[in-house]
Design a protein around this nucleic acid. Structure first.
Lengths: 343, 343
DNA sequence: TTGTACGCGTTATCAT
DNA sequence: ATGATAACGCGTACAA
């Protein structure tokens, strides 16, 4: 694999390597003719600069890394599209990095900072409660976007965050169902051992019940299965199916994500439970798929565009020197559709 | 940013850099005690090896790159999960690279081969008809997985491919609708200027009509909008809405992807068209979301697991020396659900 | 405007 | 088992 490198090109053109480098990187100090000759030679010989070598040598690349856990959360996928536009608009490029479920996103970030010469990091989703010391090692600015619980022992001026107030919105959604006359409200939430958004929304749910004089019934709360992909339709489906087997009566089902809710709907349908006649179902996120469902899904819509813009605004504010670490709470929007009925 | 490097660690441990390197990379020729001492020192000082330097120097990394166009095609997302498992099972790691719609995946692949020291490439989706010469420059084995049209001027023993016979399956689906008594069958397909799977399925559609003595009506064929994300629900929605405005009568709608079909369903519902009473709808791919819909979507299911396994089997067969380039055609499976009725 | 020489952090080779 | 040193391919002072 004798791949052509910058020295070969230099030799072929009868110039120095630095001249070739200047041609590649659009440096000003180069004769237009020389440049064209070099670029032509590059094209003819299929020369492709080696990014590893570039990263190794370069001081700073105009790159923002976006780390996302999993790929099945369509809400996060939607955010990526907008983040990319915004990052491009600032003259940077986006490096999307997928983090496995059993991987630590902070470790990945640490590696990435060394490998590419990142200027900033955006964490999409995830949970950062126990990652304090590691997080502090990151010497580039970062934003926790749509993250659930946040690190508590790290001072809030060392990082930024953008999210909705998951507990409050969970509260609002529950209260909405209560106002519709529901008392036996079931919930599908996140596993107990992690401190994700699901847990916070569950806390809001409990508080709303309490404030409205409804006793909390642990029988009504179910958790995502750890052996199935987090926040997937499949997970919502299997959990609901198991739930129905227990014959616990309920009139409404609050799922911590739309995808879970859609899976739940399927399980309900299969069991002959009509939505919303027999059971009302609500989700959280406001993903497109919910709009297309039958019945269309009532949900707590997260302001995707606003959150993505806030994320990049804060990050570039810090990178460009004006602006400092900020914690932005966006307001979610309760979208009433067809999956809920009044009792 | 004075980041600690391998030399610092060597100095601190009173050993040579090569010994540290051996400790990191699990080389056999190293004293267990020395190794532990070094690893401890590494952990204490938060040393993280620089991947750019490693990639630059390393001869071969056990890495397979998977290139995917976009992220909204849930069928491809499903494939990724299985591909990753399979790749890991072979002791390799997967580098997932997202390709933008206006980017050339072959260009990206070429860069990647230089940057990391890939052993193989998997192209997910995409269209390779006009990329022949570039494709040939790739000096690592690659598999075109679920790609639509394939390069014709490159000899078939220079690359591998895994896909369904899109034309035949398009034919079968159309014939299925015809057998159900449909004659005015509309179609939402891929843009005319690209040679993707959509185009092939369209060809099958035309052939089926012809073979069954039904005149092809160009009025009934619509294409995805170029200004909206390819194969997205949104695209299916807007195209169908526009289509309905033209008041062209039809009794069935064949969409080249499930996502398009789900978007189409929404548009039909909004227009007061009942599914399947007024119009039957079918999709293609067999994504999970289709199962959950109301009505659940009749579709041509692609054998995701089989295709992913075939892809990695072929690739590793070539990498490991036994086995050569292969072209595997998998059989799709027509899944009848609730979105079609007999006339 | 252009070329030379050095260093980025690592792994591979070779010697010990 | 270990260490010294030469690459890997590129960007960039600095000199010309």
């Amino acid at each position: 694999m004798n791949t052509v490198n910058i020295r070969d090109i230099a030799r072929m053109c009868g110039v120095g390597v630095s001249t070739v480098s200047r041609a590649i990187n659009n440096h000003p100090d180069i004769n237009q003719e020389t440049k064209e000759k070099i670029l032509k030679c590059i094209a003819e010989n299929n020369y492709i600069p080696n990014n590893s070598a570039r990263n190794l040598k370069r001081q700073e690349a105009k790159v923002i890394a976006v780390l996302i856990k999993g790929l099945t959360n369509t809400f996060l996928i939607e955010m990526i599209q907008i983040l990319e536009e915004e990052i491009k608009r600032h003259g940077y490029s986006m490096a999307l990095e997928r983090v496995h479920f059993d991987q630590d996103e902070v470790d990945i970030a640490l590696e990435l900072v060394k490998e590419k010469r990142l200027r900033g990091i955006i964490f999409l989703g995830g949970d950062f409660e126990n990652r304090v010391s590691k997080l502090r090692e990151l010497d580039v600015p970062f934003v926790l976007s749509t993250a659930g619980s946040q690190p508590e022992d790290i001072s809030s001026d060392e990082y930024s965050s953008v999210s909705v107030d998951d507990m409050r919105e969970g509260y609002k959604m529950t209260e909405f169902l209560i106002k519709k006359g529901h008392k036996r409200i079931a919930m599908i939430s996140a596993k107990t051992d992690d401190e994700s958004v699901g847990k916070l929304r569950l806390r809001g749910y409990k508080k709303a019940l309490e404030d409205n004089g409804i006793a909390f019934d642990p029988e009504l709360v179910r958790f995502m299965r750890p052996d199935v992909e987090d926040y997937s339709m499949e997970n919502g489906y299997v959990v609901t199916r198991d739930f129905l087997k227990d014959k616990v009566p309920f009139t409404a089902l609050f799922c911590v994500s739309d995808t879970l809710a859609l899976g739940a709907c399927r399980a309900l349908n299969e069991a002959g439970v009509r939505i919303p006649e027999d059971v009302s179902v609500v989700g959280f996120d406001g993903v497109e798929a919910g709009k297309f469902y039958c019945p269309s899904l009532t949900t707590m819509e997260q302001p995707v565009t606003e959150m993505a813009r806030a994320t990049t605004d804060i990050l570039f504010g810090i990178i460009d020197g004006h602006g400092s670490h900020t914690h932005k709470i966006c307001k979610a929007n309760l979208v009433e559709r067809e999956s809920v009925r009044s009792l």
